[in-house]
Amino acid sequence: MARKIRVLVAKAGLDGHDRGAKVVASAMRDAGFEVIYTGLHQTPEMIAQAAVQEDVDVVALSILSGAHMTLFPRVLDLMRERGLNDVLLTGGGIISKEDMGALQKLGVGTLFGPGATTGAIIDYVRGWVAEHRAGEVGTAK
């Protein structure tokens, strides 16, 4: 049985601009992913707990409030605390190249800025899963 890619799509922080998150969620559904959509105003703790319970491959955050330098590292720490070392943390928003670089150094994946296509995001997720979850179709670790 083909293993479904499971992605948590969350709006972190307080901003309510969910157009991007919803478009990405819809595109991922149409790419055959199972998307767990948590909705708005998620705290890092809520995101990490949902990532554990839903056993997702990927956590994708949308942050447009400028709080990305606070929220991404916090979510990453909480994920690691809960043993989610093999789960990709990615996302998008209004994030400068410089900030993207700094976050990637911490272990966050590729981040997508304004104008990114859903196609590019989906390819990236597929590629990451193919690389990191290859021998894992239904095998426990």
Binding site: A2, Q104, G109, T110, D123, Y124, R126, G127, W128, A130, E131
Partner: peptide, 18 residues
């Protein structure tokens, strides 16, 4: 996690998916 690596990966989809 670098861009290049992921691009390579997407160009070679798993056989079952093709």
């Amino acid at each position: 996690m670098a861009n290049e690596r992921t691009e390579t990966a997407t160009k070679t989809p798993k056989a079952g998916r093709a």
